[in-house]
Design a binder for these strands. Structure first.
Lengths: 360, 360
DNA sequence: TATTAGCACTCAATAATCATGAGTGCTAAT
DNA sequence: ATTAGCACTCATGATTATTGAGTGCTAATA
C-alpha cells in the first residue's frame, strides 16, 4: 500500500532527498499554488487553511501527504517541524519555469515616451533604472553597453593648455567620451582641427575595441604618415588606450529596505554588500548579456557568497542583433515574479528598440 | 535653603523650562562629559555609574541634583521617569560649541594625493564623498558648485547631424558641459569652427550666470552682427539657457544602516526619505554654502519634516575667496562629533585649495 | 550652605510560565 | 487513494515575577 510505503519512508527517509521525477498534474498545480500563496503572504503555507482558501476538493490530510512528497523532492521545506511549508529555491524555480512557459509576452502599457524624451545616454540609463524600480517596487538595475563595442562616429580634439589636449569621441548611440591627453609638442588650434578631421576619417565606423586592437597597427603599417598625422595617432592611441568599462546603475534600494524580510540579518547584509560594492551586481549582470530573453536567478543560483536570499530577474538588450548590455530587477527570493518577469521582458525590448533606432 | 528650593521646584516646576543662565564650570564639565558618554555608549547616563566611571569626587546624590538642574534647563531629558539622562538637541549643541571653541584645527593626516590623482571634476566629487564616508563611518555628502557660477574657458561646436549641433563648454575648473542644440540651417564644419572661435572669444572669462543674464543682450546691442555670428549666438543662447543645477553626491548610506539606532522606525524613515529624495539633503546643504567654517545642524535644527534624529556637519568650500559649494557628513544625532568636525573642516579646506589651484 | 547617606519608589528588561492555535505525522476506517 | 481522528510539536502572545539601575526627597553632616 502506498500509504504504508509513504509512512515507512516518512520515518526512515524523512530527510533524504528523493530522486527527481516528473510531477503529475495535480502536484504541479498544488506546488505552483503554494509558491504563489507564499509569495503573496510571506507566511508558511499549512495544509488546512490552504485547502480551504484555494477550494481544493481535497482534505487537509491528503494535502499533507502531497506536501510531504513535495518536501521529499526538495521543492518545499519546513522552517521547523510542525510548521507550514515554504518553497525552496528549487520550488521557486519550478514556479518560475511554469510561469515562463505559460506567459504570453503581450504588450504592456508602459509609456515609451519616458525613453524618447531623454537625449543623453546616461540619462536614459538613469530613467530606465528608476522606471524599473518604481514599477516593480524592488530595485532596478541596468548595465550600460561596454563602450568597447560602441562605434565611433566623430572625433574632435580641443586644446586645453599648451601641453594638454582634450579628445572627444562621439559614438553612434550618442555617448560622449572625453579624455585628457598630455602632449609634449606645441600645436595650434588649426592643426588640431586638421587632426580631428583626419582621425574622424580613419576611425569613424569602428568600435573602440577594434580601434584599440587593430586600427592603429594597420594605419601605421599601411601608410606613409606625415609626422603631423603620426602625432594625431599618438594622441588618439593614448586616449583610447585607457580602458573604458561599462557602468552599472542601481535604483530603488529604498524599496528593498521597506520589505521587512530584507531587513533581517543575513539579507540586510546582502543588501549592504550590494550598496557598498556595486561590482557584485555588475558581475552578475554581465553573465546575462549573452543569453537571450528573460533570465531568472533564484537564491543560491546567484553564485556569490555575499548575496543570499535574493533573486534577480534580468534581460539583455541589443543594438541591432548584437546584445550589448543588460537590465534587471533585484529583490528578495519571495518576489512577485508574475509581475516582474513581463516588466523586465518588455523593458528589455523597449531599450533594444530605442538604442537600435538611435544608432542608425 | 537651596535644597529646599530645589525640592519644591522639583515638584511644581518639574516640566517647566528654566530660563537660560550661564552654566558654572562644574556644570559645564559635567554636561559635556554626559554628552560624551552618551555618544560613546548610546545608553542613558545614570548618576551612580557615571560618577564612578569618570571618577568625579562627588556622590551620586549630588550628581543627581546637578543632572536635575541640567534637565530643568533643557540640556538633558529622561526617556522615562527613573531612567538615566540623555542629551537634548540643546545639550548636543552645548557640547559641540565647546568642542568648536577648544578645537585646534591643526593638520590632519589625510593623503592629499587622493584628490590630485583625479582629473575629471565629477570623479573628484565622487572620491571626496567616498573619502568622507569611509573615514567618518557615516554618510559623506558633497554639493557641487553651481555650474552657473563657474567660468567658461572654451567653447566648441561640433556637428552631429545635419540639423543638430553639439556645444561643448569647458570651464576653468575643468568641468565639461555638453548640450545638443537643434538648428534649422545647414552649416559646414568649417563654419562651426569659426563660430567656436567667435564664441570662445566673446564668452570666455564669464560665468554661465553672467552669460545667461547679460552677455547676450550686450553683444546683440553693441555690435553689428553678421548673420553668421547671429546664428552662433542663437546656438549658444539655447545651449546656455537650459538651467544647469548643482548636483549632490551621497556615499556611505550603508554605514548608517549598520547603526542599530538608525534602523529604528522613525530614523529609518528619515534615511529612506533621503535615499529616495536626494534633494532634501541638497536643499539643506545649499543653506550652508554662504556660511564660513564648519557648521553643525543638530536634530530639529535641520528644518525638514522628513528628517528627524539626525545631524549634519557641514563646511562650505571656495574657489579663491568665493564659496561655491559644500561638503558634509550626515549621521545620527549621536554622532562622534569630535572626530567628524575636524575631518569636515580639513576636507573643506583641502577641496578649496584643490579647486582654487585647478581654476588658475 | 553645599554635600551626602538613606530610603521608598519607578520602570525597562529579562526570564518564567501558561494558553492558544495552526500546524504536523501516523493509524485506521472508508 | 482518500480521509477522519488523534496525539504531538512548536511559534506566538499574554501574564506574571524578578531584578537592577535609576530616580526624588528627607534628614543628617561637614
Amino acid at each position: 500500500m502506498s500509504a504504508n510505503k509513504r509512512m515507512r519512508k516518512g520515518i526512515t527517509l524523512k530527510n533524504e532527498m528523493q530522486p527527481d521525477r516528473k510531477l503529475d498534474e495535480r502536484e504541479s498545480a498544488i506546488l505552483n499554488a503554494i509558491v504563489y500563496e507564499y509569495i503573496l503572504t510571506g507566511k508558511p503555507v499549512g495544509s488546512r487553511s490552504f485547502v480551504h482558501k484555494y477550494s481544493f476538493s481535497l482534505s487537509p490530510a491528503t494535502m499533507r501527504n502531497i506536501m510531504f512528497d513535495l518536501e521529499r523532492m526538495n521543492f518545499l521545506m519546513q522552517p521547523h517541524t510542525s510548521s507550514g511549508r515554504v518553497p525552496t529555491d528549487k520550488g521557486y524555480r519550478y514556479y518560475v519555469d511554469s510561469l515562463l512557459d505559460n506567459y504570453n509576452f503581450h504588450e504592456m502599457v508602459i509609456d515609451e515616451k519616458i525613453f524618447q524624451r531623454e537625449v543623453q545616454l546616461d540619462k536614459i540609463f538613469e530613467s530606465v533604472t528608476k522606471m524599473l524600480s518604481i514599477t516593480s517596487n524592488y530595485a532596478g538595475v541596468m548595465l550600460s553597453p561596454r563602450p568597447d563595442f560602441t562605434v565611433v562616429k566623430l572625433i574632435e580634439l580641443i586644446q586645453l593648455e599648451s601641453s594638454e589636449v582634450l579628445l572627444i569621441a562621439i559614438t553612434r548611440t550618442g555617448m560622449i567620451l572625453t579624455r585628457k591627453v598630455a602632449i609634449s609638442v606645441r600645436v595650434t588650434q588649426d592643426e588640431l582641427f586638421e587632426y580631428s578631421k583626419f582621425l574622424t576619417g580613419e576611425l569613424c565606423g569602428y568600435s573602440l575595441h577594434d580601434i584599440k586592437e587593430r586600427i592603429f597597427e594597420n594605419l601605421r603599417l599601411d601608410k606613409l604618415l606625415s609626422s603631423n598625422r603620426e602625432l594625431a595617432l599618438d594622441i588618439a592611441q593614448i586616449a583610447f588606450n585607457e580602458t573604458t568599462d561599462s557602468t552599472i546603475n542601481i535604483d530603488g534600494i529604498e524599496n528593498l529596505l521597506r520589505i521587512p524580510e530584507m531587513v533581517e540579518e543575513k539579507r540586510l547584509n546582502s543588501l549592504l554588500n550590494i550598496i557598498e560594492e556595486k561590482n557584485i551586481l555588475k558581475n552578475i549582470l554581465e553573465t546575462q548579456i549573452e543569453s537571450d530573453g528573460v533570465k531568472i536567478m533564484i537564491g543560491e543560483e546567484i553564485e556569490n557568497d555575499r548575496v543570499t536570499g535574493c533573486s534577480l530577474v534580468a534581460s539583455s538588450y541589443k543594438i541591432g542583433n548584437k546584445p550589448v548590455g543588460a537590465i534587471g530587477v533585484f529583490g528578495p527570493t519571495r518576489m512577485d515574479y508574475e509581475k516582474v518577469v513581463p516588466l523586465v521582458d518588455y523593458t528589455g525590448k523597449a531599450v533594444s528598440g530605442l538604442l537600435t533606432k538611435m544608432s542608425k
